[in-house]
Amino acid sequence: MLAYSLNRPVILERLGDDEEILLMMIDMYLQDVDNNCAALSSALAAGDQPTLLREVHTVKGLLATFADEDGAEMAAASESRLRAGDTNDVEAAIAAMQARLREVAEVLKREIGG
């Protein structure tokens, strides 16, 4: 999987070139990223399959929102496996997703000069 880089033109095109909305979304992502990672860990630790599936689905949408196609694809693959009841290597998959969420956060932080 390639390292994440912010594809600003693609995101802005989706947002109708609205910089204000983009900055607002980045801000919210940075506020929520720790909660997203924690929610994944907690569902995994509790063995709560439905919640874990939902959290993975949320991460998929979140990464796709920031045009992270590779990250969203990874989350989509995990979502499909979980939906099929396949929990092999789920810990590693969740860890990889959390790492990706943080990686994206770092890039976004730099983007807004944080």
Partner: peptide, 16 residues
């Protein structure tokens, strides 16, 4: 939407 970021995004788009 249970995702705050989606709620905020959609709200902004609705206002537009």
């Amino acid at each position: 939407d249970d995702s705050e970021i989606n709620l905020t995004l959609i709200k902004a788009l609705v206002l537009k």
